[in-house]
Simulated assay, not measured.
Amino acid sequence: MAFRYYTATTLDGFLADDHDNLDWLLSQPIDEDGPMNYGDFFADVGVAVMGHTTYQWLLDHEVTDGKPWPYEIPSFVFTHRGISPVAESISVVSGSPADHRDRLLDAAGGKDVWIVGGGDLAAQFAEADMLDDIIVSIAPVTLGAGRPLFPRRFDLELQEFDRNKAFLCARYTLAGPRESPAP
């Protein structure tokens, strides 16, 4: 069981553009059965965790035209906003990840906890010492601005890497927080 941030990013470190658009990601070739693929990753996942922006993106792009919520596993949405879950498997929570550690572990049933996004939520998990690794697929695209991959200062250790068609795929563990430079 591990807390894992599995995501994709542009070469310049953005998850989405300023309008939460993912066209850059969806236009890249990838081998669905290739290295570090989603299917193999998801087979070990027991819980999905996300912030409000990721939840809203899923509602706007995946839960449309009568399509159901895409995850049958328990899903936790971290937000301070009052939202109504669209499926019984969704729990809306607020506070720090540490406040919900036991609940997430219980819901995962011995499987991994997937921090779906965004980057700020993943960084909150890291600050709570609840992020075991970051698995990232890096696309050959730059956006110049947008939603950052991981907006905190941390040192990482590369554990493995591979290529999946257009993507450089890498798995990192967290070595620890990085000190801010002196002014």
Rank of each mutant, 00 (worst) to 15 (best):
142 T>C: 12
145 A>V: 00
113 V>T: 03
146 G>Y: 11
141 V>D: 01
147 R>E: 05
144 G>P: 00
117 G>F: 07
112 D>V: 00
134 I>H: 05
138 I>A: 11
111 K>M: 07
141 V>F: 00
136 V>Y: 02
118 G>A: 09
125 F>D: 03
145 A>E: 10
137 S>D: 04
140 P>C: 01
119 G>H: 09
124 Q>G: 11
119 G>R: 10
145 A>R: 15
136 V>I: 06
136 V>R: 04
126 A>G: 12
136 V>W: 07
120 D>I: 06
118 G>E: 06
124 Q>E: 15
141 V>H: 01
132 D>R: 02
143 L>H: 04
122 A>Y: 09
131 L>T: 08
141 V>I: 07
126 A>M: 14
122 A>R: 10
110 G>R: 09
129 D>E: 14
140 P>K: 06
130 M>N: 03
142 T>N: 07
114 W>R: 02
134 I>T: 04
135 I>H: 06
140 P>D: 01
104 L>P: 11
135 I>S: 14
144 G>T: 00
124 Q>N: 13
123 A>Y: 09
146 G>K: 11
122 A>M: 07
144 G>I: 00
137 S>L: 08
136 V>P: 04
125 F>I: 10
132 D>V: 02
123 A>W: 11
129 D>L: 09
106 D>Y: 13
140 P>W: 01
135 I>D: 02
124 Q>P: 08
111 K>R: 15
112 D>Q: 08
136 V>F: 07
144 G>S: 04
120 D>H: 15
137 S>Y: 08
142 T>V: 14
119 G>K: 10
131 L>F: 14
106 D>P: 12
111 K>D: 11
118 G>T: 03
131 L>Q: 06
123 A>L: 12
142 T>L: 11
115 I>V: 14
125 F>N: 02
128 A>D: 15
127 E>M: 12
133 D>T: 05
144 G>M: 06
123 A>D: 03
135 I>W: 10
108 A>T: 03
136 V>Q: 01
113 V>W: 08
139 A>P: 12
110 G>H: 07
119 G>P: 06
104 L>T: 05
125 F>P: 01
121 L>A: 12
118 G>K: 14
137 S>R: 15
140 P>A: 02
108 A>I: 00
113 V>D: 07
137 S>W: 08
114 W>K: 05
119 G>S: 05
141 V>N: 00
128 A>V: 09
126 A>K: 12
121 L>H: 13
109 G>E: 11
112 D>T: 01
144 G>H: 05
122 A>W: 11
146 G>E: 06
136 V>L: 06
108 A>Q: 07
140 P>N: 01
112 D>A: 05
110 G>V: 01
109 G>T: 09
125 F>M: 09
107 A>K: 15
104 L>D: 08
107 A>E: 12
111 K>P: 10
146 G>R: 10
104 L>E: 08
142 T>R: 12
134 I>W: 10
135 I>L: 13
124 Q>L: 15
120 D>P: 00
107 A>T: 11
147 R>D: 02
123 A>I: 07
117 G>W: 09
133 D>R: 15
131 L>M: 13
137 S>C: 06
109 G>Y: 13
119 G>D: 04
142 T>M: 13
144 G>W: 08
121 L>Y: 13
116 V>L: 08
134 I>N: 02
115 I>N: 03
121 L>F: 14
105 L>E: 15
129 D>Q: 12
105 L>N: 09
109 G>M: 13
145 A>I: 00
127 E>I: 02
127 E>T: 05
